Simulated scan of single mutants.
Amino acid sequence: MIKSISLWSLVAFFLMACGETKEKKENTTESDQMEVAEAYTPDTEEELPTIVGIAVDNADFSTLVTALKSADLVEALNGEGEFTVFAPNNAAFDKLPDGTVAELLKPENKETLTAVLTYHVVAGLYTAGDVVQALKDNGGSFTAETLQGSRITFKMEGDKVVLYDNKGNAVNLIATDIKASNGYIHSVDTVLMP
């Protein structure tokens, strides 16, 4: 159970854990992906693009950008605010059953697509470093509410943090703490399902 720590503090703690985890990974593919994502993190606050700006500039988020456009969420994630986005990379979308992405992108499925995409967003600014303590303080597990309204569960498994969606799918972080002017992006290897 979550003790007297706010939900947002817990999410922040989770994301810190992810940052520590990525340093321990030895998998070349994941390391390469992290380097690509980190290459889009400018040195100063003034130079930072928005969450959407970073996604547009990173070819590995092209499917996500297409989905954001189809759901009319570009303006929301491009504007002021503080968001933490668990952004599925292209490989995450490729893991979905054949035809799923094409079906979600149809205008008649905009509501479903919006629900899926907003399930990847938490209000507030949360780095990976804050999550370690939250996991320690809460027995290695806690949940956070997404903008979609459902919760994501975070668990410490060995030396890494794993997210679980409402369908019970395990989702791994492959890059963390990609800073934007209006939040953070943490790249994930699986599409979260509400």
Rank of each mutant, 00 (worst) to 15 (best):
T100C: 10
T100Y: 05
V101F: 11
V101W: 03
A102W: 12
E103N: 15
E103C: 10
L104V: 08
L105S: 09
L105Y: 06
K106Q: 14
K106H: 11
P107R: 12
E108G: 13
E108I: 04
N109S: 08
K110G: 00
T112N: 05
T114E: 06
V116M: 05
V116K: 07
V116L: 07
V116R: 04
L117A: 08
L117C: 08
T118C: 00
T118Q: 05
T118I: 03
H120G: 06
V121E: 01
V122N: 09
V122P: 03
A123N: 06
A123S: 15
G124H: 02
G124V: 04
G124W: 01
L125D: 12
L125F: 14
Y126W: 07
Y126H: 13
T127F: 14
A128K: 10
A128V: 11
G129N: 15
G129Q: 15
D130S: 13
V131F: 13
V132N: 11
A134F: 00
A134C: 02
L135V: 07
D137N: 07
N138F: 07
N138D: 07
G139L: 09
G140M: 05
G140R: 02
G140H: 05
S141V: 11
A144N: 08
T146A: 10
Q148D: 12
Q148V: 08
Q148M: 09
G149P: 07
S150W: 02
R151A: 13
R151P: 04
T153A: 15
F154S: 11
F154K: 03
F154H: 05
K155H: 03
G158A: 00
G158C: 05
D159E: 13
D159I: 04
D159H: 03
V162K: 15
V162A: 03
Y164A: 02
D165G: 03
D165S: 00
D165K: 00
N166L: 09
N166T: 12
N166G: 05
N166Q: 14
N166E: 04
K167V: 09
G168T: 06
G168F: 08
V171F: 02
N172R: 13
L173I: 14
L173G: 15
I174H: 10
A175D: 08
T176P: 03
D177C: 10
I178G: 13
I178F: 01
A180C: 05
A180G: 11
A180E: 01
S181N: 12
S181K: 12
N182W: 04
G183L: 04
G183H: 04
I185G: 01
H186E: 03
H186D: 05
